[in-house]
Simulated assay, not measured.
Amino acid sequence: MSSALLVSTGVIALAEIGDKTQLLAFLLATKFKKPWPIVLGILAATLINHGLAGAVGAWVTASVGPDILRWVLGISFLGMAVWTLVPDQIENEEAQLASKFGVFGATFVTFFLAEMGDKTQIATVAMAAHYSDVFMVVAGTTLGMLIADVPAVFAGDRLASKIPMKLVHGVAAALFAALGLATLLGAGGRFGF
Protein backbone atom coordinates (compact mmCIF):
# COMPACT_ATOMS: atom_id res chain seq x y z
CA MET A 1 0.00 0.00 0.00
CA SER A 2 1.21 3.50 -0.83
CA SER A 3 2.92 5.51 1.92
CA ALA A 4 1.19 8.61 0.50
CA LEU A 5 -2.18 6.97 1.17
CA LEU A 6 -1.26 5.68 4.63
CA VAL A 7 0.40 8.86 5.90
CA SER A 8 -2.31 11.11 4.44
CA THR A 9 -5.08 9.01 5.96
CA GLY A 10 -3.49 8.80 9.40
CA VAL A 11 -2.41 12.42 9.70
CA ILE A 12 -5.75 13.83 8.53
CA ALA A 13 -7.80 11.42 10.66
CA LEU A 14 -5.92 12.58 13.74
CA ALA A 15 -5.88 16.26 12.74
CA GLU A 16 -9.63 16.18 12.10
CA ILE A 17 -10.51 15.06 15.62
CA GLY A 18 -11.81 18.16 17.36
CA ASP A 19 -11.59 20.18 14.11
CA LYS A 20 -14.44 22.53 13.22
CA THR A 21 -15.68 20.21 10.49
CA GLN A 22 -15.97 17.39 13.01
CA LEU A 23 -17.90 19.77 15.26
CA LEU A 24 -20.05 20.59 12.23
CA ALA A 25 -20.69 16.85 11.73
CA PHE A 26 -21.92 16.64 15.35
CA LEU A 27 -24.15 19.68 14.81
CA LEU A 28 -25.68 18.41 11.56
CA ALA A 29 -26.27 14.93 13.03
CA THR A 30 -28.00 16.44 16.03
CA LYS A 31 -30.09 18.82 13.93
CA PHE A 32 -31.16 16.58 11.04
CA LYS A 33 -30.89 13.04 12.49
CA LYS A 34 -30.34 11.66 8.97
CA PRO A 35 -26.80 10.24 8.96
CA TRP A 36 -26.47 8.94 5.40
CA PRO A 37 -27.14 12.21 3.54
CA ILE A 38 -24.71 13.86 5.97
CA VAL A 39 -22.02 11.25 5.27
CA LEU A 40 -22.55 11.59 1.50
CA GLY A 41 -22.35 15.40 1.79
CA ILE A 42 -19.08 15.10 3.74
CA LEU A 43 -17.69 12.71 1.11
CA ALA A 44 -18.66 14.91 -1.87
CA ALA A 45 -17.43 18.15 -0.28
CA THR A 46 -14.16 16.57 0.83
CA LEU A 47 -13.44 14.97 -2.55
CA ILE A 48 -13.90 18.27 -4.37
CA ASN A 49 -12.15 20.42 -1.76
CA HIS A 50 -9.19 18.10 -1.29
CA GLY A 51 -9.04 17.39 -5.03
CA LEU A 52 -8.53 21.11 -5.60
CA ALA A 53 -5.98 21.21 -2.78
CA GLY A 54 -4.14 18.25 -4.34
CA ALA A 55 -4.05 20.06 -7.69
CA VAL A 56 -2.55 23.12 -5.96
CA GLY A 57 0.04 20.88 -4.31
CA ALA A 58 0.97 19.33 -7.67
CA TRP A 59 1.22 22.81 -9.21
CA VAL A 60 3.51 23.96 -6.38
CA THR A 61 5.72 20.92 -6.96
CA ALA A 62 5.98 21.69 -10.68
CA SER A 63 6.58 25.41 -10.12
CA VAL A 64 9.11 25.44 -7.30
CA GLY A 65 12.63 24.02 -7.32
CA PRO A 66 13.35 21.01 -5.08
CA ASP A 67 15.53 22.90 -2.57
CA ILE A 68 12.97 25.67 -2.03
CA LEU A 69 10.16 23.11 -2.00
CA ARG A 70 11.90 21.13 0.74
CA TRP A 71 12.13 24.22 2.97
CA VAL A 72 8.58 25.39 2.23
CA LEU A 73 7.16 21.93 2.95
CA GLY A 74 9.27 21.37 6.06
CA ILE A 75 8.24 24.71 7.54
CA SER A 76 4.60 24.09 6.48
CA PHE A 77 4.50 20.75 8.28
CA LEU A 78 6.05 22.32 11.40
CA GLY A 79 3.42 25.09 11.21
CA MET A 80 0.71 22.43 10.91
CA ALA A 81 2.10 20.80 14.08
CA VAL A 82 1.59 24.03 16.02
CA TRP A 83 -1.81 24.76 14.40
CA THR A 84 -3.07 21.28 15.32
CA LEU A 85 -2.63 22.13 19.00
CA VAL A 86 -5.03 25.11 18.70
CA PRO A 87 -8.65 24.05 19.31
CA ASP A 88 -11.20 24.92 16.64
CA GLN A 89 -14.63 26.42 17.09
CA ILE A 90 -17.47 26.29 14.62
CA GLU A 91 -18.49 29.63 13.12
CA ASN A 92 -22.12 30.76 13.51
CA GLU A 93 -22.40 31.48 9.77
CA GLU A 94 -21.51 27.87 8.94
CA ALA A 95 -24.16 26.56 11.30
CA GLN A 96 -26.81 28.94 9.89
CA LEU A 97 -26.16 27.84 6.29
CA ALA A 98 -27.18 24.33 7.27
CA SER A 99 -30.80 25.36 7.83
CA LYS A 100 -31.26 26.84 4.30
CA PHE A 101 -30.67 23.64 2.29
CA GLY A 102 -31.68 19.99 2.50
CA VAL A 103 -29.58 17.61 4.56
CA PHE A 104 -27.18 16.65 1.74
CA GLY A 105 -27.00 20.22 0.39
CA ALA A 106 -26.48 21.73 3.84
CA THR A 107 -23.71 19.26 4.60
CA PHE A 108 -22.03 19.73 1.22
CA VAL A 109 -22.07 23.54 1.34
CA THR A 110 -21.08 23.88 4.98
CA PHE A 111 -18.29 21.27 4.79
CA PHE A 112 -16.91 22.70 1.56
CA LEU A 113 -16.86 26.24 3.00
CA ALA A 114 -15.57 25.12 6.40
CA GLU A 115 -12.65 23.31 4.73
CA MET A 116 -11.54 26.38 2.77
CA GLY A 117 -8.25 27.38 4.36
CA ASP A 118 -8.72 24.83 7.15
CA LYS A 119 -5.72 22.93 8.48
CA THR A 120 -6.76 19.70 6.73
CA GLN A 121 -6.99 21.48 3.37
CA ILE A 122 -3.60 23.14 3.87
CA ALA A 123 -2.17 19.77 4.95
CA THR A 124 -3.57 18.23 1.75
CA VAL A 125 -1.77 20.87 -0.34
CA ALA A 126 1.47 20.18 1.54
CA MET A 127 1.18 16.39 1.30
CA ALA A 128 0.29 16.55 -2.40
CA ALA A 129 3.44 18.61 -2.94
CA HIS A 130 5.40 16.23 -0.71
CA TYR A 131 4.40 12.97 -2.42
CA SER A 132 4.43 12.27 -6.13
CA ASP A 133 1.00 10.57 -6.10
CA VAL A 134 -1.68 13.26 -5.80
CA PHE A 135 -4.46 10.70 -6.30
CA MET A 136 -3.30 8.67 -3.28
CA VAL A 137 -2.92 11.81 -1.16
CA VAL A 138 -6.46 12.98 -1.97
CA ALA A 139 -7.82 9.46 -1.42
CA GLY A 140 -5.96 9.33 1.91
CA THR A 141 -7.04 12.75 3.12
CA THR A 142 -10.64 12.02 2.14
CA LEU A 143 -10.50 8.66 3.92
CA GLY A 144 -8.98 10.36 6.97
CA MET A 145 -11.83 12.89 7.04
CA LEU A 146 -14.38 10.07 6.86
CA ILE A 147 -12.62 8.06 9.58
CA ALA A 148 -12.90 11.06 11.93
CA ASP A 149 -16.26 12.49 10.86
CA VAL A 150 -18.47 9.46 10.18
CA PRO A 151 -18.33 8.27 13.81
CA ALA A 152 -19.19 11.86 14.80
CA VAL A 153 -22.30 11.65 12.61
CA PHE A 154 -23.44 8.31 14.04
CA ALA A 155 -22.30 8.58 17.65
CA GLY A 156 -22.64 12.33 18.17
CA ASP A 157 -22.03 13.78 21.59
CA ARG A 158 -21.62 10.37 23.25
CA LEU A 159 -18.35 9.87 21.35
CA ALA A 160 -17.02 13.40 21.83
CA SER A 161 -16.99 13.18 25.61
CA LYS A 162 -14.91 9.98 25.55
CA ILE A 163 -12.10 11.11 23.21
CA PRO A 164 -8.98 12.52 24.94
CA MET A 165 -8.70 15.56 22.62
CA LYS A 166 -5.40 16.85 24.01
CA LEU A 167 -3.74 13.47 23.49
CA VAL A 168 -5.10 13.10 19.95
CA HIS A 169 -4.05 16.64 19.02
CA GLY A 170 -0.62 16.00 20.55
CA VAL A 171 -0.13 12.83 18.48
CA ALA A 172 -1.25 14.62 15.30
CA ALA A 173 1.07 17.53 16.07
CA ALA A 174 3.95 15.09 16.64
CA LEU A 175 3.27 13.44 13.25
CA PHE A 176 3.24 16.81 11.47
CA ALA A 177 6.45 17.81 13.30
CA ALA A 178 8.11 14.51 12.29
CA LEU A 179 7.09 15.07 8.66
CA GLY A 180 8.44 18.62 8.85
CA LEU A 181 11.77 17.60 10.34
CA ALA A 182 12.16 14.66 7.96
CA THR A 183 11.47 16.95 5.02
CA LEU A 184 13.92 19.59 6.22
CA LEU A 185 16.57 16.91 6.72
CA GLY A 186 16.13 15.75 3.13
CA ALA A 187 13.65 12.90 3.48
CA GLY A 188 10.21 13.07 1.90
CA GLY A 189 8.02 11.98 -1.03
CA ARG A 190 10.47 12.89 -3.81
CA PHE A 191 13.34 12.92 -1.34
CA GLY A 192 13.19 9.23 -0.34
CA PHE A 193 10.57 9.17 2.49
Rank of each mutant, 00 (worst) to 15 (best):
F101S: 09
M127H: 09
N92Q: 15
N92E: 12
E93M: 12
F111H: 07
V103F: 05
D133H: 15
F111E: 03
V109C: 06
V138E: 02
T110K: 06
A98T: 12
I122Q: 11
S132Y: 13
A114D: 00
L97C: 10
L113N: 08
F135P: 02
K100S: 12
M116Q: 06
A128I: 04
V103H: 10
Q96C: 05
Q89D: 14
M136C: 08
G117L: 03
D88N: 13
D118W: 00
F108T: 01
Q89V: 14
I90Q: 07
M136F: 06
F101A: 08
F112G: 01
V134E: 00
H130P: 02
S99D: 11
N92R: 15
A139Q: 02
D88R: 14
S99C: 05
F112E: 02
F101M: 11
D133N: 15
T110F: 00
D118K: 07
T120C: 05
T107W: 00
T110G: 01
A126I: 02
A139V: 05
I122P: 01
M127E: 04
F108D: 01
V134L: 03
P87Q: 13
A128S: 10
A139K: 05
D118A: 12
N92C: 06
M136T: 09
F112P: 00
F112K: 09
A128Q: 04
V109I: 10
A114G: 10
V134M: 11
A114E: 00
M116P: 02
A106F: 01
S132A: 15
F101Q: 11
L113T: 12
T120L: 03
V109K: 12
Q96L: 14
N92P: 09
G117S: 08
Q121F: 06
V137A: 03
T110C: 03
A106T: 10
Q96K: 15
K100A: 12
A114C: 04
E94G: 07
G105I: 03
V134T: 12
V125L: 10
E94K: 14
T120G: 07
L113R: 14
E93L: 11
A126V: 03
D88I: 04
F135Y: 15
E94P: 03
I122F: 11
E115S: 13
A126C: 05
A114H: 00
A126R: 08
A98Y: 01
V125Y: 04
Q121R: 10
V109F: 03
E91Y: 05
A98S: 11
A114V: 01
L97G: 08
F112L: 06
V125E: 05
A126G: 05
M127D: 03
A139F: 01
M116W: 04
G102L: 02
A98C: 09
L97T: 10
T110D: 00
G102R: 06
A128D: 00
G105R: 06
L113V: 09
H130C: 11
H130E: 14
A98G: 08
L113M: 13
G117H: 07
A126P: 00
A106E: 03
D88C: 07
V137R: 07
D133K: 15
Q89C: 10
V137W: 01
Y131L: 06
